[in-house]
């Protein structure tokens, strides 16, 4: 009995889900928070002449820490391809990535000494900000969108959504056979409309298109049984298209930050290299 009880407990512990943000009771959040506070206090106390500068002793210290942090944060791209458990599990690593990334915001900003200009140094800082902000965006959409995504899908999978669309199209095709040429052409255009030919910007903004299906629905007058049926099917298709487009929009929001986060990280490392080399080149 005792063994059974023990096993039961273990299973309960193992099954309670703990996301990467709350990993180990916010261990990395606390570490990063304390480090950020410490950095800010030292910045406050430290009184470099003539003003805070990336080239003071503290400035170089922050710069070195920041650069190493950036390289370590980038390593998540390599690390995530190997899954392990425990203290150095991928979840722990991701948790550290998030909170140390936020810490970088403080360290990088203090390193600038709030001196900005049109130069490679501020370029590196700007790219760093861009990467961090895109990361924050990513965390936010990961927290919010999946639920909305499944609510929108209802019980449907993506494949089922596509199948649904195909079925409606088939029925529409059959139903439109008796229609005269002009109406048939409208339905034909509606059938030819690509539900997925939505540009990146339209997907992100969720702007509703005036596609061929909407045009067909607006122009076909239901004055006989065949066109009434076509009209009903067009309504169903429009509803389906809206659902597909909402899904496309959320998928786009969910994915787009990585298209910024990853390439801009590489750009940041390039700018960081230029920043560091230039500082020592014109020493």
């Amino acid at each position: 009995m005792a063994t059974r009880g023990g096993r039961q407990t273990r299973r309960v512990t193992a099954s309670r889900h703990e996301g990467y943000l709350r990993h180990a009771r916010f261990r990395w959040a606390k570490i990063a928070g304390i480090a950020a506070l410490f950095a800010i206090i030292v910045y406050w106390i430290h009184d470099p002449d003539p003003r805070p500068n990336g080239g003071s002793v503290y400035g170089y210290t922050l710069g070195t820490i920041g650069a190493l942090l950036i390289l370590w944060l980038t390593m998540l791209g390599v690390r995530k391809r190997a899954m392990t458990r425990g203290a150095w599990s991928l979840k722990a690593w991701t948790s550290a990535h998030v909170y140390l990334g936020l810490l970088l915001l403080v360290i990088g900003t203090l390193h600038t000494g709030f001196q900005f200009g049109w130069n490679v140094h501020t370029l590196a800082y700007g790219l760093m900000l861009f990467v961090i902000l895109s990361g924050i965006f990513g965390i936010t959409v990961y927290g919010v969108l999946p639920r909305m995504l499944s609510e929108n899908r209802g019980e449907l999978t993506e494949t089922q959504m596509l199948e649904n669309l195909r079925a409606i199209d088939r029925q529409l095709h059959d139903a439109a056979q008796p229609l005269d040429g002009a109406r048939a052409a409208l339905v034909s255009a509606a059938l030819a409309e690509d539900a997925f030919a939505v540009g990146l910007w339209s997907r992100l903004t969720g702007r509703e298109r005036r596609g061929a299906t909407r045009i067909a629905r607006a122009r076909i007058l239901a004055d006989d049984p065949a066109s009434t049926r076509a009209e009903m099917l067009l309504d169903r298709k429009l509803e389906m298209l809206r659902q597909v487009h909402r899904h496309l929009r959320m998928r786009a929001l969910l994915e787009v930050w990585l298209y910024v986060h990853v390439p801009v990280t590489i750009a940041l490392i390039a700018a960081l290299t230029a920043h560091i080399v230039s500082v020592f080149f014109y020493w």
Partner: peptide, 28 residues
């Protein structure tokens, strides 16, 4: 019969991978 019926690449259909510029290319 319709455009939806003609769709082949079903796996990436809903993803922006199809339309967004490649991450690797952008990074380089």
């Amino acid at each position: 019969v319709s455009r939806a019926a003609a769709t082949v690449d079903e796996r990436n259909l809903f993803s922006i991978a199809r339309i967004a510029p490649s991450r690797r290319a952008t990074a380089w």
